[in-house]
Computed example of a mutant assay.
Amino acid sequence: MLNLEDLGEEGFLERLATWVKTRNPAVRISIGDDALVLRDGTVVTSDSYEEGVHFSRLYFSPEDIGFKAAAATLSDLAAMGAEPICFLLNLFAPPRCEIDFLKRLYSGMEEVCGRLGVEIAGGDSVASDKLILSCTALGKTTDPLLRSGALAGDLLYLSGFPGLSRVGQQALRRGVEGFEDAKRRHLRPQPRIALGIALRGKVSACMDVSDGISTDAGRLAKASKVKLVVEYERLPRHPELLAFAEQYGGHWDSLALNGGEDYELLFTASHDLPDCIADLPIHRIGRIEEGKGAFLEIGGELRPLLPKGWDHFSK
């Protein structure tokens, strides 16, 4: 019998889209993008974070857990070019979870939400065997950025440096010193809200990179029904990424392409964009052509860009 492991996360979402119907005219964008968009410009997203899957208390403080859960959820609003309004948390926690731990967790959420003017507006609490944070964020925009607008001839851009969060995760797990930028990127990612807002009206398609370029680039190509080409020589390389790969025997390009949880923005535009937008470095990393699928160009040769990023259900 077919199961989730056979389909993988992407296959499951494709099936899900056929099981439910679009029936309410108030809904503008439903399943298939970074967030739900209503006709009045309201943007809604939800995400979940489970202990042992998304974070470990071995190197995440309670504040880090709360900060990352809120920031990663708000990243979906950034991808839509939305201004965030409020945040809700459904907290699943063991009954013996210490109140001081929860206070510190909420203080981490309050830190990132306060910085962005987002109100923590409630949620729910449920007894559970392990700590799980089920988050919802609401925002507003009349001009949402979508995954589905890329056109042949567009240029492909990425904010920041890919693979840095994966380096931070591995450095924290190994207990190695240094790599402070990478560790900070993993523990406390920054939702690119200002960048998303600045890109409104300037880009043709946009999404956040939560599961790695190799996976998310394919999603953008599929949504836009185009061929997406990542140009290997243009991939940005953070010094800590190169240093980690050299010291610990990894491949920098594998970390950059497949490392998830960077929460940078991947977007397309019909024209050249500045190297810096909203005080963030912007890198042109490829192009859009007629066709379908995602590819990696190395030395003029095109190879399929296989989705090797994070997948909850993949074998």
Rank of each mutant, 00 (worst) to 15 (best):
Q247M: 14
Y232Q: 12
H312P: 06
D34H: 01
P162D: 10
G139V: 06
N3P: 04
V209I: 15
F101G: 06
I29V: 15
R219D: 15
E297Q: 15
A93S: 13
Y263H: 15
D253K: 05
L102D: 05
G160C: 09
T45K: 01
G259I: 12
G8A: 02
E180V: 15
F55P: 13
L91P: 08
M109I: 07
F55I: 00
S30E: 09
A269E: 07
T18L: 04
W19S: 07
L187S: 15
D216F: 02
A121E: 12
P62L: 07
D181S: 13
N24T: 06
P62K: 13
I282F: 05
A71H: 04
D6Q: 03
L265V: 13
E180W: 14
F179T: 12
A171T: 14
G11N: 01
D6N: 02
E246D: 14
Q169V: 03
A171G: 09
L235D: 00
S61L: 02
A182F: 00
A72W: 00
T22V: 07
D211T: 02
L36N: 12
D311I: 02
D33C: 02
D275T: 15
L242I: 15
I132S: 05
T45Q: 01
E83I: 13
A82W: 02
A35R: 08
G175S: 07
W19L: 14
I285S: 08
P144I: 01
N3F: 01
C276F: 06
Q190C: 11
I193C: 09
G249Y: 05
E5L: 03
F295M: 03
E261R: 02
G250P: 08
R303A: 08
R174E: 15
I120Y: 08
Y59Q: 10
